[in-house]
Design a protein around this nucleic acid. Structure first.
Lengths: 331, 331
DNA sequence: TTGTATGCGTTATCAG
DNA sequence: CTGATAACGCATACAA
């Protein structure tokens, strides 16, 4: 199990050619005479030669890798994001190095470390300080995801203001009186934007919004925690707008488990339109965002050699009306 | 935004010392006179010198990074696994590079590529072919997770045979007659072992198990898909053993959404004991496995310089009886 | 304590 | 088409 790798130079010796020629054969870039090529190829095969990444990285001054930084990666959202990113990176022959900063204190240091191993980095909104993003950006190319990044960096995000349409739908079309919002704006640019849209819809409908959101995380268990604060009291809201599908599902599960009827006793909506949203009963009313496309666009921005102008790309989202808001009668 | 990094040599020039001295100061390993040290340190600070990873990696012939390979990473299970792994790697100063092979065809190639960027690799069971694992193992140190790996590799997994106790509990203590198993044994060593334990419990209780499991994946939406096959027919099972909590929760949600009572109409159990299991109503009967410890043990095996004997470490698991199996009366 | 010289594995430049 | 030779950025015996 030794680390006894065969080096390029060794292959050259055995094949009786110069190191340069082995490099040429190995990379297939420059023309080499068929006979020499075959001979070298055979030696490579026999001795299991594999070019060393850092040797190549050092000489080429590029890593052939892209970094992807997340706050955490539980749930289908991040899974989808990574897949979209990897699929696109594959096109350009880049590897993907994923970093899940579980809101640890040393995240910034870790990100800086990663910056040293990749040619470009996609950073999810709310993961690292803008200060650190700046530092990374002056070293390698950076694209911010799910957050508008200001003039300095390029960014790709999805339109969160559709939450305004959703909230209006609840308020006006269905006539719900007491709405609640589940999600913690602080730290997540996406949630902040959704909470703002929720507020804006109340304002334009001349209705009084709740003073505060229910501040919980974005995982399903957080939806269950929100349920304890929301469902067990007398002035239960008659409709709840959740920051994402995960929490909406957690809330839905908790509501049903308490014997409440959805949407009759309480309406519930989400954001993302993950697979589970359509499968559950009642089917979840939500907002569809093109996660894969968001990731792919980001990867493309990172890989493309031509210098795009740093700007904010905002992908469209779509309101998906199902049963959990009260549409389409009782399922 | 240029890539104009300051090199060690440049720092040496500016500070008027030799490159070696800068290296010594930078690493803080060999003693250097205070005056020189301060001078060099100041230059490093002023010019923002950061040692290059590949330069160092090339010279030291190590990357200072560990690889972590997964089939996918949706859900709390993988999230927890990564956190446990990273926390431990942090101790030894290693970075963690995560690779999520979303059951793509080119996974093996990607893994081989990663093998070139790290000093050791943890591979989750059922992710890559044993053939590829072998190749990687003769290049760097490898530990297999959640799967017993045979004599060649070290492995760390959790005891799946507790599913036998769980199944017996359902069969004997509660007297359920028709059990079903949700999960796809093929491809996941963990699920295979759980299905085997499920079968074994039937055998030792002299009861006839179902001929086949409900072959779905491990995500929550798969639980909802299983529900369609399981809950809408006349000979509905009276108890369902799910391969993990995610699918159990998906099934539970679907059951409640259909107006079925749990556990009265159908009992449901899971595996993992994720946070949501205790929060949901009815609370989920499940098996607790020490995910974090599993990950930490793996990381330790990878980092430790002393050559552990390649062997299978099996961590204990614990049956957690709650309400969804019928225990403790109706919640 | 500090400097010099060499090696790490590969690519790039320039002759031939 | 092929071969020397010089980077690439850093660490480390060895010498001073």
């Amino acid at each position: 199990m030794g680390n006894s790798r065969v080096t390029l130079r060794r292959v050259a010796e055995i094949a009786g050619v110069s190191p340069a020629t082995v490099s040429r054969v190995s990379r297939g870039t420059t023309p080499v005479s068929p006979e020499v090529r075959d001979r070298v190829l055979r030696v490579i095969e026999e001795h299991g030669y594999k070019p060393s990444h850092f040797g190549r990285a050092l000489a080429e001054r590029r890593h052939g890798a892209l970094g992807l930084v997340f706050p955490g990666l539980s749930g289908p959202y991040f899974s989808e994001l990574i897949q979209g990113f990897e699929a696109e990176a594959l096109e350009t022959g880049d590897s993907v190095l994923v970093l899940a900063s579980h809101s640890r204190a040393d995240t910034d240091a870790t990100v800086l470390d990663l910056a040293d191993r990749v040619d470009g980095m996609a950073i999810h909104g709310g993961t690292v300080s803008t200060d650190t993003i700046g530092k990374v950006a002056q070293q390698i190319r950076v694209v911010v995801m799910a957050s508008e990044a200001g003039p300095a960096q390029a960014s790709v995000s999805a339109a969160n203001d559709t939450v305004k349409d959703l909230t209006r739908h609840l308020l006006v079309d269905h006539g719900y009186r007491r709405l609640a919002f589940v999600g913690m704006p602080d730290g997540s640019p996406d949630v902040t934007a959704r909470w703002q849209a929720f507020l804006a819809a109340h304002k334009s409908a001349r209705r009084k919004p709740p003073a505060e959101p229910i501040r919980v995380g974005l995982q399903q268990s957080d939806g269950a925690i929100a349920a304890e604060q929301l469902l067990d009291r007398d002035d239960r809201p008659d409709a709840v707008v959740c920051a994402n599908d995960e929490t909406a599902l957690g809330l839905l599960l908790s509501a049903l488990g308490r014997g409440l009827r959805v949407p009759q006793d309480v309406a519930i909506t989400g954001f993302d339109d993950m697979p589970m949203a359509a499968l559950v009963r009642p089917a979840l009313t939500t907002i569809r965002q093109p996660i894969r496309e968001l990731a792919a666009t980001t990867a493309r921005l990172l890989a493309d050699p031509l210098d795009q102008p740093a700007g904010d790309i905002v992908l469209p989202t779509e309101l998906v009306l199902r049963s959990s808001c009260g549409c389409g009668g009782v399922p």
